[in-house]
Structure formats: structure tokens, C-alpha cells
Nucleic acid binder design. Structure first.
Lengths: 232, 232
DNA sequence: CGTCCGTTTGAGCCCCGTCAATGTATGTGG
DNA sequence: CCACATACATTGACGGGGCTCAAACGGACG
């Protein structure tokens, strides 16, 4: 957890994050508000019930939006990727836990002052609206992935989604990547159990669709066959 | 499907919808753009793949955001209630089908001109951001309702959600209401089959938690017992 | 009265959750 | 360096909940 002056000039998400809607002059106002913060895997950024007095932009790494139900089981409601925005501008307290899935790096801002900047610079508000709309689409895609689909379809769909997220170009999936999630987290995301996820992965490996290296590494040997597995 | 001049003065959602962020003068600009439209149950407002050249505010009734998967099964991704906003401002084409669940009434706007109005009146953009954030929360609540829960828990949670939506005051559920969804639509929303939904409802009635009148009517005899059913 | 559409109910089976044991990687202390 | 502890992953056996297939029921409307 470190705090440094921001360095937008070399920021890897400077032209994808919400702040990219601002010009140099406007961004310097934002710079004065924000500080960097780094998280290690497992670190909690916000806790459900916390005062929602900060928000942030993810620069690198990955976060999960999670919730623990009455039975003590964790449900993962969404993943946040670099350039994503974190924080609830309109809720008095946080609804969910925000936890780092891998070592991560963020720009953090005091919420109140960030909101003032939205009023001062409408382009920032429009950029956030765009991000929010994209998050909504992604959330609905995740719902479609999970609703009324078998374990095989969910795991196949998840692998495709992770391959696309790992790739720089959004059109073609990466052939080889590391999962930022444990089996338990995959299960919590897909609404399955650890054992079922594990069994599906072994099945995929047995039929030659993927190859596992260690617990996290995945290589897509036959991406073309994964699509049909996810659909049918 | 009718088109009339707008009558904001008597609009039932005039202080909850996005346009409530505008003053009289600004709203009159919006009025010039929009027309009313009424839908009957089953009417399609937007089709997936359509040019996203219109957006709308729902005045009364209810809509579903739906998608048909490769197997031909419909998945319902979200419900839209009065004062809700419909349309994708940042996508070239519609991702989902938007269909009326019951007879509905909307304000429709050409998207391009609506976007211009957002640029001219930043308060409108902020209101939409707020709505979008709320939709996101709702979408994630629906995910939590469905993930890793039994059929009984899902149907119980669904009944509670519908009772709250049917009530005017969001705190207390309505004791008696009509479901705007068929069994098939409930199943498509909860990720179950028609048969399972039907069986759960008969079980609830047998143990005296609810009473059914016709296919659509539901009376909550013992709302206090429904919460635990949904949680545990 | 008859048709159509949605709902209800029943019978059987399979997928996936539960419980349990084993395997593997990493770190810690002697 | 090895023994040990911890955490995560894999694999197996078993049972139950929900999906599939199938039939009967009920209301709306001509």
C-alpha cells in the first residue's frame, strides 16, 4: 500500500480509463486529488458496509466484486479489469466487497471531490456513464453465461472470456494465459462447486481442448472446439 | 402503438425518471424531441441487432430485456419498471430484445438528439449515470439471487422482489398482486424450467405461505416465512 | 362446444452437490 | 536439508434436486 504522486504521462490506461475524457489542464485537477495505491492478492479495497467515501480507477491487476451470503458462501458478482472504475457514487455505503485477485495498482480519489469534478467537467460524467453502460452489458453477459447452462457450458464460456481478457486485442483470444482466480473463485463466479470446476477442466484436458500447466496456467489447444462446448 | 404530444405535467414518473433532472425550460426541449408510444403485452420495442437509433423512458407497465440462446431458449436478463431508461447509447446495434411484459406506455426519443441534449444539459447525463448505476446494482442483486441457490430459494426471492415492485412504498411488500410474467418467463428469469417453478409454487401454497388466484394472482399469507425460505 | 395456450402433475434419469481421501506446491522452523 | 504445516487441487463414491418426457387439466375465446 503505497502513495505516490500520479504519473498520468506514463499511465498504461491513460487513453482507456474515464479520465481519458479530460484534457491536460483538466486532468491536472484530477491529479491533485488522487494518490496511487497498490494491493497484494487478497487485499480488501472496500468492505461491504464501509462508508463509500472513495472511488478508484484500476491501472493494473484485477479485482473482484464479491458478496457473502447467509450460508457463508462467497458469490463473485463481477470482475474488474484495468481501466475499470471502482466505487459507488450514489450509495451511502458500499454494497459489496472489493478484493484484489492479483497484485494490483490503482488511482484512488476522495469521492466527494471526484463528484465535484464530474459537475465541473461534464465530459468526465459522460465517460463514467459509458463505463457504467459497459459494466451493465458485461454483467448481463455473465448472467446469460450462468442461467440455465450446464457446468460444461459455464466453464467453457469462462475460459473463452478469460482468454479474451488476457489478450491485448479484444477480437482474438490469447492462446496461453494464467487464470487470476483460484478454483474456489471460479466456482463462486460460475455458481458451481470447486469439485465440479476441477472435473470439467480435467475433462477438457482429456479430450485435448486445453492443456494445464500448474494450477493456474491454461493453454488453449483447440479454441474452435471450445465455442460449441460453451453454446451447446 | 400511438403517438401523441408529451404531457409532462401529468406524467406519473415526472419526478423519478431521468428527465426529472431538468428544469421546465430544459424539459421543453426534450418534449419537442419525444413522442409517446404504447405497447401491448408481447410487443417488441427493440430487436437484438436493430440499429440503436432510439431510446425511451418507461412511464407505465413493465418490460423485459431478453436474449435467445443457441438452443432456442429465452433468457431474461433484467426487468424494467416505470421510470426506467431503455436503450443503449454507446452501442451501434441493440444487444438484446426489449419486449413488453404487460401493456406499457413510454416516451420515445431519437437517440442522436437525446445524446446532444446530454451534452447540452450535463444534469441529464448525471441522472442517467445514476440510473445506470442503480441498474447495475439491480443486475448484480439478480445474479446473487440466482447463483448457487436452490429452486425454492430462487422462487421465494422472486416472489419477494415482485411483491416489493408491486407495492408503492419500497419498504413494505404488497400483500396481494398479479405477476406480470408467465411461468415460462419466470423460469427464463430464474434459470429454471416451467415445471420446477410450478412445483415450487404449489409447495408454497400447500404449506400456507401463499395463495394463488388464477394463473397470475398471488397473495402472500405469511410474508415473514418467505424471507427465510429465500435465504436458507 | 371445441380449440388453443398456459399451467399443473407425474415418472424416471442424470448431472452436480456433498462428503471424504489423496495429491501437490509453497513456506516455516528445527 | 528435511519434517511439518498449510492451502489449494484432484479424484472417487454416493444421493438428491431439478431437467426431460409425457399426459391431464383449466381458462379464454370463437
Amino acid at each position: 500500500m503505497a502513495a505516490n504522486p500520479l504519473a498520468c504521462a506514463v499511465c498504461p490506461v491513460r487513453d482507456r480509463a474515464a479520465c481519458s475524457a479530460l484534457d491536460e489542464q483538466q486532468r491536472s485537477d484530477l491529479t491533485r486529488l488522487g494518490v496511487h495505491r497498490s494491493l497484494k492478492r487478497g487485499d480488501v479495497l472496500f468492505h461491504a458496509g464501509d462508508d463509500g467515501d472513495h472511488c478508484a480507477t484500476l491501472i493494473s491487476g484485477a479485482l473482484k466484486i464479491a458478496q457473502v451470503d447467509a450460508d457463508g458462501h462467497e458469490h463473485i458478482l463481477a470482475l474488474i479489469h484495468p481501466a475499470g472504475f471502482v466505487g459507488e457514487l450514489f450509495a451511502p455505503v458500499a454494497h459489496h466487497d472489493i478484493v484484489a485477485l492479483s497484485d494490483s495498482f490503482l488511482c484512488m480519489f476522495p469521492r466527494r471531490q471526484y463528484e465535484e469534478l464530474i459537475e465541473r467537467y461534464p465530459a468526465l460524467g459522460r465517460a463514467l456513464l459509458r463505463r457504467s453502460s459497459e459494466d451493465l452489458l458485461e454483467s448481463r453477459a455473465l448472467m446469460a453465461l450462468m442461467t440455465g447452462r450446464t457446468a460444461r457450458q459455464r466453464v467453457a464460456g469462462f475460459l473463452l472470456a478469460m482468454a479474451n481478457a488476457a489478450s491485448e486485442s479484444p477480437c482474438h483470444p490469447a492462446a496461453r494465459f494464467d487464470l487470476p482466480l483460484t478454483r474456489g473463485e471460479i466456482a463462486a463466479l460460475l455458481g458451481l462447486t470447486i469439485e465440479t470446476v476441477s472435473r470439467q477442466l480435467t475433462k477438457f484436458e482429456k479430450v485435448g481442448v486445453i492443456k494445464r500447466s500448474g494450477a493456474r496456467g491454461v493453454e488453449l489447444l483447440d479454441p474452435a472446439r471450445l465455442g460449441p462446448l460453451a453454446a451447446g
